[in-house]
Design a protein around this nucleic acid. Sequence first.
RNA 1: GGAGAGAUGGCCGAGUAGGUCGAAGGCGCUCGCCUGCUAAGCGAGUAUACGGGCAAAACCUGUAUCGCGGGUUCGAAUCCCGCUCUCUCCGCCA
Length: 422
Amino acid sequence: MLDLKFVRSNPEKIEEALKKRGGKVSLDSFLKVEAERRRLLAQVETMKAERNAVSQEIGKMKKAGEDAEAKVLEMRELGERIKAIDNNVKELENTLEKELLSIPNIPNESVPVGLTEEDNVEVRRWGEPPKFDFEPKPHWEIGEKLGILDFERGSKVTGARFTFYKGLGARLERALVNFFLDLHTGEHGYTEFFPPFMVHRNSMVGTGQLPKFEEEAFKVEKTDYFLIPTAEVPITNLYREEILDAAEIPLYHCAYSACFRAEAGAAGRDTRGLIRQHQFNKVELVKFTTPESSYDELEKLTNDAEDVLKKLGLAYRVVTLSTGDLGFSSAKTYDLEVWLPSFNTYREISSCSNFEDYQARRANIRFRRGPKGKPEFVHTLNGSGVAVGRTVAAILENYQQPDGSVIVPKVLQKYMGVDVIR
RNA sequence: GGAGAGAUGGCCGAGUAGGUCGAAGGCGCUCGCCUGCUAAGCGAGUAUACGGGCAAAACCUGUAUCGCGGGUUCGAAUCCCGCUCUCUCCGCCA
């Protein structure tokens, strides 16, 4: 959410930013409503001031045994008018809040301007895509053949885009979760959390999934709970409505969670394999920082995620998302894309973003620089560290052998207990 | 799921026959004084949001906030209704 005062005084900046994102939005009506709100607010607050003063007088008069009936009647009538205007103001505020919650974040200056992912800018590459002297297979074929992935039974038991992992497949998934968490807690300084997998509506609003993208989320019937689409939601909302000490931040948190996504509008895309599931596992990195350090922290966070792929020996590249491809709440995002032989291209496996104070304002997460400091909004960041299912896909495809077996990357061998899946 | 108790400022904690309570007191914290050092002591200050004044900061001023929402009333931390959460006991359960 953007600062109302900022919107009020810089509407052209916001309109420009929205345009860069590919929307065309005018703030004219918003500003008109906002001006009306302030007009009415000033009016009703003056009336309340009078009521407070006179009510106090009435109290004194009654105590003194005087007749205050005339003033009581007067105030009764004033009260009616106050109530009417109050309702009016509340209505306008609801309208404004709804609008405000639907305005995306303003992209950072350094974000390349463009309307699609074609306009994303590659920042760097690491590693060499493997060369095969045989026709490499897609991971779903490798997995099925090895008997470690069962897509058909996933569909039978639950539905499309759900999968069973079996044997060393299940173990590989678990090994990756442990490896990711051990790496981030052991070498990168993150504190591990295990969050709830459901959150209430306000938390979803806090990180920006709601109100605009409700059709993307799974709602739990008979409750106000949603299945989390990422651990970003519970972890970022950890400190909602809190004021942190400056000495406490930056906070580095990481968490494993299952992630649930309706993938509305993705029909027909990536229908095979592990790339796009309704349920997948992910280890998420979340940071709470000061405003002045958040962009340095974004670089570090991205490096932390990259370290996972380096240690696994998977070729990847880093791209800066263009304004048009940027997520709703993000000011700047780097995507890590891992090489997938069957796609003959790089595919997203991690997304690392700086939200600046956009989520912090929605979730009301602040910090204080000192005993006399005014509360300020923190900056929040997060990134996948990394998506587990897609990593399984990448390992199966990049480490496949002519005989259909798959070599286990060195760092995973102690978790797997074997060095080859066959 | 049943019964009961509770929710007040950074923390603890007073405050119900409704009025001068944004809220006593204590702790903590900040600044100053005092004191060989430390500790102790003394004094002052110490919530947030949204408006208005101001180019802006400082500052001044108004409104709102005693879990959340609504109601009664000239006036609500105090009365009424609904909800949420916490604690205790019982039941159930991995």
